[in-house]
């Protein structure tokens, strides 16, 4: 089977996706990705008119069935404490995270 996603491309994507994987997970996932891409290649053989528009969703939304946009207004949530209670680490109402590294952009 053709391996479109090499270990190098895979490792780059894993870094971008912010995932830490075990070697077993990495082997399984890369194998499945290549297998899925093989299935996706069925799309390449379909004759496609250059003017075919893309469909980002199926059902059209003419104005008569589309809700009016909401007013851009700020509302305090009544459940502030419930929301803060979900946070993994909090101090004085602020979320605590580990050190945020500063990188020099080239």
């Amino acid at each position: 089977m053709q391996e479109e996603i090499s270990p190098e491309i895979f490792n780059h994507m894993v870094e971008l996706a912010a995932l830490e994987l075990t070697p077993e997970e990495a082997a399984y996932l890369r194998g499945q990705l290549n297998k899925q891409l093989q299935a996706v290649h069925a799309l390449q053989v379909i004759p496609l008119d250059e003017d075919t528009p893309i469909a980002s969703h199926g059902v059209p939304y003419p104005p008569e069935i589309s809700p009016a946009p909401r007013a851009d207004e700020w509302h305090p949530d009544p459940n502030r404490e419930d929301i803060i209670a979900q946070m993994p680490a909090v101090e004085d109402g602020y979320i605590v995270v580990p050190d945020i590294p500063h990188e020099e952009l080239e």
Binding site: I5, M13, V14, A17, L19, E25, L29, L33
Partner: peptide, 14 residues
């Protein structure tokens, strides 16, 4: 995340 979300994230990014 389990394996399936990881797989979908990576495929979607690619």
């Amino acid at each position: 995340f389990g394996l399936q979300p990881k797989l979908r994230i990576l495929m979607g990014m690619y």
